[in-house]
């Protein structure tokens, strides 16, 4: 048996994980970077995105693509609005105190989770992909006639998985453009640099915070909508993305968006490859070990700056 095609397959699976992880982790990183708070409920915003996607797809009916596109728009908006409301009613009241915010978002985590269990129920439900053609994975070998392609038996991916990777790339570029090129991105970066000076120069920091918290949650929800045709929606599905996002954000450097994306690709790909050849548990063990090593030897993260 040749190893090459299997590594390619594992890398593709890993790239899907990486794409979804990058979106989720960038949301967490944005919130930490600008607001200096840790959002433990981030995984629940992810889960809400998937569950809302299921509701929307059910309601819309018709061709699967219709429901899916509707979910792609509605779920992030609804989740973003819920998060912004949570920011204004809870986090603002406790003055974004770091420790109290952790406790408050743990509370939020259980509230969201249990409300979902009560309304949506304990079942795992799929959302149909808008398109899902099977694509055989090509490989090559040196035969008698030199270089030639063939399709190893039984190895395939789908068009939808490739689309997820592409969509995540587009959204990430969008986030980067927002931060680097727009007025609101400028206000966010100024608030991140110095909250008090932002206030002293007329920036409505409270509104910036609500917006950032909303955008962070909306990114998680968007990631979930993309993955739900592959993974199914379930009320406990938020735990893994939360853990992996934390791993990625710490390795990438707290609050550094490029670092977060690079770390997501690294963790996603290695998770895919290790899961295929060994076991998913080993992949998580190694990732967590890596976080430990980073925290000991490079606490600012691989791409963070010390004085961030």
């Amino acid at each position: 048996m040749e190893l090459g095609p299997y590594i390619l397959l594992a890398s593709l699976e890993g790239a899907v994980t990486a794409a979804v992880l990058a979106l989720t982790a960038v949301g967490l990183s944005l919130v930490f970077g600008v607001m200096r708070v840790v959002n433990i409920a981030h995984g629940e915003f992810f889960m809400l995105g998937a569950v809302i996607a299921w509701f929307v797809a059910q309601t819309v009916g018709g061709h699967p693509a219709l429901g899916f596109v509707a979910a792609l728009v509605i779920a992030p908006l609804v989740v973003g609005a819920i998060a912004a409301a949570a920011d204004m009613t809870i986090l603002k009241r406790i003055d974004y105190d770091p420790e109290r915010t952790i406790v408050a978002t743990i509370g939020l985590l259980y509230i969201i989770q249990q409300l979902t269990l009560m309304t949506y129920g304990p079942e795992a439900r799929p959302v149909e992909a808008p398109f899902n053609q099977r694509l055989a994975i090509p490989w090559f070998e040196w035969g008698e006639e030199g270089f030639e392609f063939y399709f190893p038996w039984g190895l395939s991916t789908t068009t939808y998985k490739l689309a997820v990777i592409g969509a995540a790339g587009v959204v990430l570029v969008g986030v980067w453009l927002m931060m680097a090129r727009t007025r609101i991105g400028l206000l966010m970066r100024a608030t991140q640099a110095d909250r008090d000076m932002a206030l002293a120069f007329g920036i409505p920091v409270e509104r910036v915070y609500a917006l950032v918290f909303g955008i962070g949650a909306a990114l998680a929800a968007l990631a979930a909508v993309l993955i739900v045709p592959i993974q199914q929606a379930h009320y406990l599905m938020g735990a893994d993305p939360l853990l992996l996002s934390f791993i990625v954000v710490i390795i990438g450097g707290l609050g550094s968006l490029p670092g977060t994306v690079v770390a997501a690709i690294f963790i996603g790909l290695s998770d895919g490859i290790i899961s295929v050849f060994f076991s998913p548990t080993l992949a998580k063990i190694l990732a967590t070990l890596l976080v430990g090593l980073v925290l000991v030897f490079r606490p600012q993260g691989l791409f963070g700056t010390r004085a961030a």
Binding site: L186, R189, A190, A193, D194, M197, A198, F201, I203
Partner: peptide
């Protein structure tokens, strides 16, 4: 207490 990470032009723009 400048807005670090922002350019001179961007700091002035905020002003």
């Amino acid at each position: 207490r400048l807005f670090s990470g922002l350019t001179v032009a961007q700091n002035l723009e905020i002003g």
